[in-house]
Amino acid sequence: MSRFKTAEGKNLYGLMAEFDSPDKLVAACYSARDAGFRRLGAYTPYPIEAVWEAIDHHRSKLPLIVLAGGLIGAIGGFMLQYWTSVEVYPMNIGGRPFNSWVAFIVPAFETTILCASFAAVLGMFALNKLPHPYHPAFNVERFAEASRDRYFLLITTKDPDFDPVRAREVLERTHPVEINEVEE
């Protein structure tokens, strides 16, 4: 349930402005933030680092998740080999020590990469709350252009200081192609 309504009386999710260049989007992100809006979404056809900074994106926890996955893989892979070749099934191979750590490095490296990759993919899904079958942004017809050559900025009503009139004023000053109300 939203506190605000669209012109047709539906629940309002936010206001979306469309831009035809990344520079305008970046400028609009800064204007919206200067106006006090914090719950912003920016949509671009390809990653743009400046946008990432402009909406003051919080730091992702993904690197830590990948590190944890990698460490589990490294220790687990090494211990698996240590346990089988030293503890439970020791074999004399060419007179080498049971704990042949040099030879263990390669499989341990592989399990490190395996677990780190799984942690990266699954962690990314979890942090993005995917799969996510419904998102109000797609209620705007023009939004399909976000995967072609248009750039979008969304101010959501989740913002504690959200005010539809002021949000529209701020967005209109940033030279958008058009502004749409987003139905929830």
Binding site: G94, R96, V102, A103, I105, V106
Partner: peptide, 12 residues
């Protein structure tokens, strides 16, 4: 460096 170590260590 590691590749060289693994090859020489394995060849012995």
């Amino acid at each position: 460096q590691l590749s060289q170590l693994i090859i020489i260590w394995s060849g012995n």
